[in-house]
């Protein structure tokens, strides 16, 4: 076969290696860790890593749902505000309305799940593009949060902040929320790798028409994905109120772009059908490590934003180049 275009076989191989699941984000993460470890002796400690994970666990959890959606070639702009709504519902019901706090948590998660299902229904029944649908539900969720509560809800019952509590592993304090996030990643990874539903998510993202012809219920897969994503936003809400100790109506406004950033850094293609949730975990950790490492080395935090921007463009470029190399 002759090579088409300017790309040589060697560079093609190199690009497909970089585009292999989780390879690039892992390289980026390892390099970042090495650099920061040489710059600050406080960086490479269990305590610091536990802190990094706690800082990223909310976005990390939202990014799980975002990964599933992006794998189907969709996108969700509404996740942060759905999550904020869930958080406000959980806390206000418990604090102001005297609902049993555990029941309030369940209702909050249910609200988020239902919002995800609404996204899915609008996308599948009315055939609307996910970008537009979730832009709409972003605004609706934002308005609902403010209509329901304009003030932060404080004085949360203990059970609502239990995910923020820690246990000792050796000398390192680890929060239950961090553990829950890792468990969610493992479950999602298992689902994508080892179940028919996981294969169907990839197939739908690859080529919905082909998926339909092989007998996959495409709309049902999409609806399930958006609903499951809604559930992860509910769990993200619980982590957020546990970490901050308040139900915050201002929360979650940047979470949509932050979660998309993590997914893209993790090597999942915005065109759908390629990628892995473990890449997203690496993407989340990359952002967290840069933020923390730059802080420890005394670099202004705006450089973290700069570096994130460069990494996002690199990640998308690798995806795009590897698509060309495949063609």
């Amino acid at each position: 076969m002759t090579t088409t275009g300017p790309m040589s076989t060697a560079s093609r191989r190199f690009i497909s290696f970089l585009a292999a699941p989780a390879v690039s984000p892992l390289i980026a993460l390892v390099i970042a860790v090495i650099i920061f470890a040489t710059q600050s002796d406080r960086f490479l400690t269990g305590r610091n890593f536990s802190l990094i994970v706690q800082q990223v666990m909310v976005v990390g959890t939202l990014a799980i749902g975002q990964t599933l959606i992006i794998l189907t070639a969709g996108i969700d702009l509404s996740n942060g505000l759905i999550s904020a709504l869930g958080g406000v519902v959980m806390t206000k019901l418990a604090v102001a309305s005297g609902v049993n706090p555990v029941l309030a948590i369940l209702i909050g998660i249910l609200v988020c799940t239902a919002f995800g299902a609404v996204n899915g229904l609008l996308i599948t029944r009315l055939n609307l593009p996910p970008f537009i649908v979730t832009l709409g539900t972003l605004n609706i969720a934002f308005a609902l949060v403010r209509i329901y509560s304009t003030q932060s809800i404080t004085g949360l019952p203990d059970v609502q902040t239990s995910l923020g509590e820690t246990f000792l592993l050796g000398t390192t304090a680890i929060s239950y929320g961090s553990i829950l996030m890792f468990i969610l990643y493992l479950i999602t990874w298992y689902m994508l790798q080892n179940t028919a539903f996981g294969r169907h998510i990839y197939a739908v993202g690859n080529d919905p028409e082909a998926a339909r012809l092989t007998g996959i219920p495409v709309n049902r897969v999409l609806l399930t994905v958006y609903t499951l994503a809604g559930a992860t936003y509910g769990i993200g809400a619980l982590m957020l109120i546990a970490r901050t100790g308040v139900g915050d109506p201002q929360a979650g406004q940047d979470a949509n772009l932050e979660s998309i950033t993590a997914v893209v850094l993790g090597g999942t293609s915005l065109f759908g059908g390629r990628g892995n949730v473990m890449g997203t975990l690496l993407g989340v950790l990359i952002v967290g490590v840069f933020r923390n490492g730059l802080q420890l080395t005394g670099v202004p935090s705006i450089y973290q934003v700069l570096i994130t921007g460069i990494l996002v463009i690199l990640a998308v470029a690798i995806d795009q180049l590897s698509r060309k190399a495949r063609a």
Partner: peptide, 24 residues
Amino acid sequence: VHQSLAVAPALNIVDNMFLGREIR
């Protein structure tokens, strides 16, 4: 076998063979 083949390009041959009728 449709002209479009109805295969998912990013999935491997085995996955495509059993797409929609996977064995558990």
